[in-house]
């Protein structure tokens, strides 16, 4: 990872899924510019939808606060490079 190590701030995901989230974020940063938050978020969300089923949400940025409801075991908030990443599944199941 050229971006350095990701730092998990909060999560209730399995370790395997956490690693996948951070790898996906790192991959997105290789593909897109750090300012293109929407494309980065889209990349991660689409990956999670295809691997773990639909209903994933992703927010990427350097300044945001949020409040949301997520399914159990599907939430992670971490920092990588200059950005913060929030990934969660909004649909209960």
């Amino acid at each position: 990872m050229l971006e350095g190590k990701a730092m998990v701030k909060e999560t209730d995901m399995s370790t395997k899924m956490q690693i996948h989230a951070m790898a996906s974020a790192s991959q997105a940063l290789d593909l897109y510019d750090v300012y293109d938050c929407i494309s980065i978020a889209a990349h991660i969300k689409k990956e999670f939808d295809s691997v773990y089923g639909n209903g994933w949400q992703c927010v990427v940025g350097s300044n945001f606060g949020c409040y949301f409801t997520h399914s159990s075991g599907t939430f992670i908030y971490f920092a990588l490079a200059t950005l913060n990443f929030l990934i969660f599944k909004g649909t209960s199941s």
């Binding site: 929407i38 980065i40 978020a41 940025g61 945001f64």
Partner: peptide, 10 residues
């Protein structure tokens, strides 16, 4: 989500 600098895909 509230902030001055973020992008999202939902």
């Amino acid at each position: 989500i509230v902030g001055t600098s973020f992008g999202s895909y939902v």
